[in-house]
Computed example of a mutant assay.
Amino acid sequence: MIVVIGKSGQLARELAASAPDTTVCLGRDDIDITNAQSINTTLQQYSASAVINASAYTAVDNAESEQEQAFLINDTAVGLLGEYCAAHNLHLVQVSTDYVFNGQHHTPVEVDALRDPIGVYGASKAAGEQALESIHGLSYTLIRTAWVYSRFGNNFVHTMLRLMKEKPQLGVIADQVGTPTCAAGLAQACLFAAYHAVQGNHHWTDQGVASWYDFAVAIQRLAVAKGLLDKAVPVNPITTADYPTPAQRPAYSVLSKSTLKTAFADVEQKHWEARLASMLDTLN
């Protein structure tokens, strides 16, 4: 049995859908991961072999004014889960983010690159990574990912589909580059890591590179072809400066996936457009 921390998020829902017979998902009403006693009391009820932490504070802009909450969930709770797993011989799969880097690279960022976050969200996730590294005897997989979307919940794809129905035209940022990542594929990577106790730090995104503008154009093209949109509207490239936000975003978020060839060789990797097409099919 694999215990998934999280129930309503995109990744947790994909994990539950992917492995309904071998996972149990625990939400906020089931466990308080900021409290060591709650973790101990709750997790001891399960004969688990691994824990996947699919819970996180991900409100990037809100984190700038809610620093304490961001660090509580992304740092303190991660350390508490790690301590429990180390004490009970459980493998922990922790999901992290491209935001632990500064976005100033020009080639895919390697797993051992220097952490240098540019905002509170990234700093809280980086602190969580360091918390795991400091726990003696912990068996864990750290999976960094980026630009996650799914058929579930609120995400860029659902937002674009809604706006493309409502607006006569859209402006989408073209100077931030990364890789769209479907949560369905990420879930398979997390499950593989849990089943096989994959060790160390790794990056998982879908294949290829895109800007948010490229991503939006592909969403519209595929959605029109699949009958999810009646017609196309103009999608115009804009700059980050044209759309200011409280938190700074990394300009370059392409993560190197060099370790996947050996550590995740049996997990299927696909180009982001192929994953997007498959995900849109589920919305019909």
Rank of each mutant, 00 (worst) to 15 (best):
A77E: 13
E66C: 07
D98F: 04
V111D: 02
N35E: 13
L81P: 10
Y57Q: 08
S150G: 12
Y140K: 03
A113V: 02
F152V: 02
I33E: 07
Y46R: 00
Y57C: 06
A56P: 08
E66Y: 10
I52S: 11
L72E: 12
Q44T: 07
S96Q: 08
G119H: 13
G128F: 09
T145C: 04
A77G: 12
F152G: 00
N74V: 14
Q94N: 15
N89L: 07
N102M: 06
L80Y: 11
V93A: 00
L81A: 09
Y84F: 15
S96P: 14
A50M: 07
L114H: 04
A127L: 04
S96R: 09
D116N: 03
D75L: 02
P108N: 00
L72W: 04
D98P: 02
A126F: 10
Y99Q: 03
D116M: 00
G82D: 13
Q37N: 15
P117H: 01
N40T: 14
H88S: 10
R28A: 14
F101A: 01
E64D: 03
E83C: 08
G79D: 12
S65A: 08
F101N: 01
Y121Q: 03
D112A: 06
E66S: 09
F71S: 00
E68W: 00
Q44C: 06
T97E: 05
Q45N: 05
Y84K: 07
T58A: 13
V51G: 06
A131N: 11
A87E: 12
Y46T: 02
Q130G: 00
L81V: 11
I135F: 11
A87T: 08
Y149M: 08
Q94M: 14
E129H: 03
S96L: 12
A86Y: 11
N102C: 11
Y46W: 11
Q94S: 08
E83L: 14
F101C: 01
S65D: 09
D32R: 04
Q37M: 12
A48W: 13
S139K: 02
G119E: 09
F152Y: 15
L132Q: 13
N40W: 14
I143S: 04
G128Q: 08
Y57D: 08
S47I: 01
A70P: 07
G82E: 14
D29S: 02
V60W: 13
I33K: 06
I73Q: 13
V78I: 11
L80M: 09
